[in-house]
Design a protein around this nucleic acid. Structure first.
Lengths: 149, 149
DNA sequence: CTTGACCCTGGACCGTGCTCCCGGATATAG
DNA sequence: CTATATCCGGGAGCACGGTCCAGGGTCAAG
């Protein structure tokens, strides 16, 4: 079976060589074997694992979380893996909701700004400047406390 | 009018004093005035601004982006300000779309995982793990010993 | 055997966003 | 006036996720 050097592995996964070594230092990815010379040799399992790491990253997992995920898989505890993914899902959904509130605030501001005239007539400036009457609030409701002001 | 010291400001915004000074160093938040002694004094506008910074951060904006957002309020060109706000709006919408893709990927995975059984039956590990016929050994790097030759 | 591409380790460095500590000055309550 | 809480500037340190040398050693083709 064909094995890959670190450069070929990195290239196939779309990462830099240093990143592969960094992941190894971080306990995420070990070479299948080493040559007598010390050269790392990787197989398809390692390539798959590296791609897993990258995909998990794009799904919002930190390297630490990915390491936990990979460790869980070794423990064959599917339930825990699923719970970790569910927790991340809930987290992502919260962030989406918060961003949607921000988007609505920005959209309202943009719609209310004439795009010309005096700065005092621009609700964007007034809202960001923190002065004057509060126009559409860029803050999500979740960030407001009863004890405010 | 009541002004706040740096400690009171920080406490009301839920940040550390050092963070306030860090934001000042970063060009994000200047005190309204200073006492002759050099003590910073803040008003409600600064508190609002600090809270805005924090909220924007929780929405995934970097301090650099927040600085750009806030710099809008210093401009006098209303048209330019509006365009910048529109660009931010488009950015927020892109973030939302990216997070939604993340969510969809996670949701699909979570839904398809039985939550029990063999790791080979867990799509979170298998589908993301690559297209290999078998689940690669996901053992952490530190646990693996070359051991051969 | 030589050449050039590749790989090795170890460590420095980067940007981001804080957080802490220091020695000294200042504010404020009793 | 004193005690003590707060503040000052400057600088160090930290965690993350890399990225980039330096000063070698190794591999494969010609």
């Amino acid at each position: 079976m064909e094995t890959l050097g670190i450069g070929a592995l990195a290239q196939r996964a779309g990462v830099r060589i240093d990143t592969v070594r960094y992941y190894e230092r971080s306990g995420l990815l070990a070479p299948k074997t080493r040559l007598q010379s010390g050269y790392r040799r990787y197989g398809s399992a390692e390539l798959a694992r590296l791609r897993f790491i990258r995909r998990a990253q794009t799904l919002g997992f930190s390297l630490k979380e990915i390491r936990e995920l990979l460790t869980l898989s070794k423990g064959r505890d599917v339930a825990r893996v699923k719970r970790a993914a569910q927790a991340k899902l809930a987290d992502v959904e919260q962030r989406i909701a918060a961003l949607q509130r921000m988007r609505d605030g920005l959209a309202t501001l943009v719609a209310a700004c004439p795009g010309h005239g005096e700065p005092t007539d621009c609700p964007i400036l007034r809202a960001l400047g923190g002065e004057g009457p509060e126009l559409p609030d860029l803050a999500p409701a979740a960030a407001r406390r009863p004890a405010d002001h």
